[in-house]
Write a protein that binds this DNA or RNA. Structure first.
Lengths: 251, 251
DNA sequence: AGAATAGTGTCTATTAGACATTATCGT
DNA sequence: ACGATAATGTCTAATAGACACTATTCT
């Protein structure tokens, strides 16, 4: 059921309207994109933070983000990816939009909007790049970051991103995105446990993961002293798998 | 772990910076909020659409939305609620943020952002208000709306909202928000079936809902011809309940 | 009694939890 | 053989699906 007047995205009348339209004449909130970049390092969930070099919140730590550049960013995710590439050198992370906040209070300069994402990176891949002006960009254990006073409402955004990640780890194969190359099932299980914050049953875990199709045997074994472990790699053709039941996860 | 320089949201230096800051000097995307307002009417999922009175997409149907008014809207949800109140007279619907889209193409005037929400309303409560200028605001069956060519990328936003609603109906008590006052379990089951698009097992459904604590017996019975049915009301003190397992829903 | 709608009994199927047991390595 | 880590066997628990069956009303 197409409306009669619908397909006219370029009538003369509309062209005239657009020609006179001045995009900058109305007051608008400023718009940013902020990403909680997660990785696992030393058996702990870490998040990448940047120390601000400008007001407001000068010197305070913040998520990786910045304003949309309407010249170069084709869409919102492009802004997130651009900042991520600048700071970590990684172009194609797992990236998921979480929540958009916008109000009068979160920035002392007035009404602002920020769309938050979280990214998952395998630690091995990362080579940090000092930002312009030797900006301080460093990994913080999530537990510590959560206790810090971050810039803007980034504590809130970080919590939202963290909760989403933890919750999805209970019923999806998302944490597979934290792995790189070949890995054992026990290593993947550890990644899950770090994300969830609790141990999981090895047997249940293996049953679920292996039936999900998210990973496949690499053919090789890891010989680390005792009984060698089967090595797996991500099945790049597989989407994130959603289980019909959530894991309870142990006390 | 508080950074030494962190709590200084009002140093002299920062005050000076803020005083000189001119919020309008930078180019920014325009920012809107659009809501898919859902209700069930005649055993079909309906969505409220508005016929646009302005360019671009003049005369085409769109979701209920509009620009953020930085003067009156305290936050993003306030914009959604303001528009919803204007069109439906309802102030406190169930409202959930779904996705934020932003790119160069979705509006011919250039880079724009829209944050989408969906709202759930019981049909009985609604009294439509013709908008300013006798604007055309009407309910459309979702199946028809999905076939129409909506303004901007509202087909995409509608799909996202619809998918989120359907998906959550399989493992939460969200559809309870579509009910008003007293209702029978069969009526609630029908609401679920309309949202999901498939029939569900009565026995499983009753087991789940009654164990969720989302509703409680009203004490009254509905006498509609045959065996009378127990009437229930929402338990307003209960949050949306998340089941540990997803319903399969029948073919 | 019969029809219609409300609601239950109960059996099966699936899959997670628990945890004992076996498998395979290095020394 | 022993210790350690990898992996499996298998029993129980929880809950969804299927569907026959009972309950309550009206005519």
């Amino acid at each position: 059921m197409i409306d009669e007047t619908s397909s006219s995205a370029s009538t003369e009348e509309e062209s005239a309207f657009l020609a006179e339209y001045d995009a900058s004449q109305y007051d608008r909130p400023s718009t940013a994109v902020d990403t909680a970049i997660f990785t696992i390092k030393d058996d702990q969930l870490h998040v990448l933070l940047i120390q601000r070099e400008e007001h407001p919140f000068l010197k305070q730590w913040s998520l990786v983000g910045g304003y949309i550049n309407m010249e170069v960013d084709t869409d919102l995710a492009a802004t997130a990816k651009r900042k991520l590439l600048e700071k970590t050198g990684i172009a194609t992370p797992y990236l998921e939009q979480v929540i958009t906040v916008g109000d009068k209070q979160r920035d002392p300069r007035g009404w602002t909007i920020s769309t938050s994402y979280f990214a998952l990176l395998p630690w091995e891949k990362i080579q940090l790049r000092a930002g312009s002006g030797a900006q301080d960009v460093t990994w913080h254990p999530h537990s510590e970051a959560a206790e810090m006073s971050l810039a803007f409402d980034h504590n809130h955004l970080l919590t939202q991103c963290r909760d989403r990640l933890r919750s999805k780890a209970l019923y999806t194969t998302l944490p597979v995105n934290l792995m790189e190359g070949e890995f054992t099932l026990n290593e993947l299980q550890q990644a899950y446990e770090v994300v969830i914050g609790k141990p999981v049953q090895a047997k249940s875990f293996r049953r679920r993961i292996l039936s999900s199709g998210a990973i496949k045997e690499s053919g090789n074994m890891r010989a680390t002293g005792k009984r060698p472990a089967q090595l797996y790699v991500k099945d790049e053709t597989a989407d994130t798998y959603y289980f019909a039941r959530t894991m309870e996860s142990l006390a």
